[in-house]
Amino acid sequence: MLRAVIAGFVAILAGFRTTFGYLFVKKPTIAYPSIKKQHAPRFHGLHELRRYADGKERCIGCELCQIACPANAIVVVGAENTPADRRSPGERYAARYEIDELRCIFCGLCEEACPTDAIVLTPRFEMSDYRRGSFVYAKDRLLVPPQGGVGSAPDERPNGIPADLGAVAQQKSTVDIATGYDATWYGRALKTERRGLAG
């Protein structure tokens, strides 16, 4: 009985020691948005519809991304190219292509399903807005503008914060690119543990 009371008391004290100790630990918080974190090399962010070098859309409106999407976030409606209005190289193009970025879980299955590498995920991640409707991205925002080149291929993603994200006060890398570990204290701890296990 007494022993249990003492043990409980000691346990409480240990708790106090723990919380007190954390007072002096360096905080891992990054002061976003003034400091931006380096994302992982294969980070999945906002989508982009690519073009061919001649300016034609890669998307053929086949809807495979739509059926691949586990979150039902994509809507595609196809239409037929006419000689007067030729959007994509084949017979068919996407008359309507919409992604609800609120529904999207950024798994990248659309990218995998795409037979023409038209839909890709860029590292852009800043898309907050005030209205739900504005998260439904249609072709006007998804398609690379004609003067914007062809877009980036899925296997050559730019490894850095896109320049068009606005002023970046300081790029603070928390990712150890070589090993992929998070370079904060927690990541270091994990790394140490792993090393200990290996050694």
Partner: peptide
């Protein structure tokens, strides 16, 4: 602030 520090946060800043 103290609560935040104890929870590994910066707190109001």
């Amino acid at each position: 602030k103290v609560m935040a520090w104890m929870q590994l946060r910066p707190g109001p800043n």
